[in-house]
């Protein structure tokens, strides 16, 4: 636990030292939204919902890609000697989840600001967005680890991730479309399913990461 915290602190420190990537992400969100803002004004709820989730997906790829890709070979070797795989992986997952929570919050704000607010139930939607951000970040973190080991760029990570993420994304879009009507409510069991899927992803990542880790 202590070591996870230390690794997490190291990630945060790196993030504050190398702020270009954080601001790069903000700029990415900002420009994407500005393009959308220019292309359409005030889309209807279904379009808004679809755009939002697709936008979140692309933000996630950009945010998470560097988590493993930034580590050089030598640095990975160093981590290998001082940590065990589970702690290293969990710290990465945790950090990416935090980053995505922040990014989904920001993009939600900008979306309502620029493209109008079709939400009838704002809080359930916000909750779903945060949950969705975490789900996306978990899947893509693990795939980033695979892509990094394959010595490939972020493109192959997106390629590996898209088919795997579709079911969750469909589930999230379905659930969140309920919040655009004042009468429908978000089904609790479906949210439970999403959380269970997240738990499954973390479990699989913890089991499989040691095999990626050693060379």
């Amino acid at each position: 636990m202590k070591r996870i915290r230390a690794l997490l602190a190291k990630e945060l420190l790196l993030e504050t030292r190398q702020q270009y990537s954080f601001y790069g992400l903000l700029l990415y969100i900002g420009t994407t939204l500005f393009v959308l803002f220019m292309a359409i004004d005030q889309p209807e709820a279904a379009v808004w919902n679809g755009l939002f989730w697709v936008n979140l997906l692309f933000i996630c790829i950009n945010a998470v890609a560097k988590s493993f890709l930034q580590e050089s070979r030598g640095r990975m070797l160093y981590f290998y000697t001082i940590n065990n795989a589970t702690e290293f992986l969990l710290s990465k997952l945790l950090f990416n989840a935090l980053l995505m929570i922040l990014m989904s919050g920001i993009s939600l704000l900008l979306f309502t600001f620029l493209l109008g607010n079709p939400m009838k139930q704002a809080w359930p939607f916000t909750g779903l967005v945060l949950l969705g951000g975490i789900s996306l970040s978990l899947v893509f973190s693990f795939l980033a680890a695979i892509a990094a080991k394959a010595q490939q760029n972020a493109a192959i990570m997106a390629l590996l991730g898209f088919p795997v993420i579709i079911p969750q994304l469909v589930l999230l879009m379905r659930l969140s479309s309920a919040t655009f009507s004042p009468l429908l409510s978000v089904s609790g069991s479906a949210v439970g399913l999403l959380i269970a899927l997240d738990a499954l992803i973390v479990l699989m990542a913890v089991i499989l990461f040691p095999f990626l880790w050693k060379d």
Binding site: V139, F142, L143, I146, K149, A150, L160, P163, V164, P167, Q168, V170, L171, L193, L197, L200, I201, M204, A205, L208, F211, L212
Partner: peptide, 20 residues
């Protein structure tokens, strides 16, 4: 790596196919 991806994708895919 491909074995790891195979297992990971399968483990997520099949529950999802049952849920969707």
């Amino acid at each position: 790596l491909s074995a790891v991806y195979n297992i990971f994708a399968y483990a997520i895919l099949f529950p999802a196919i049952w849920i969707l």
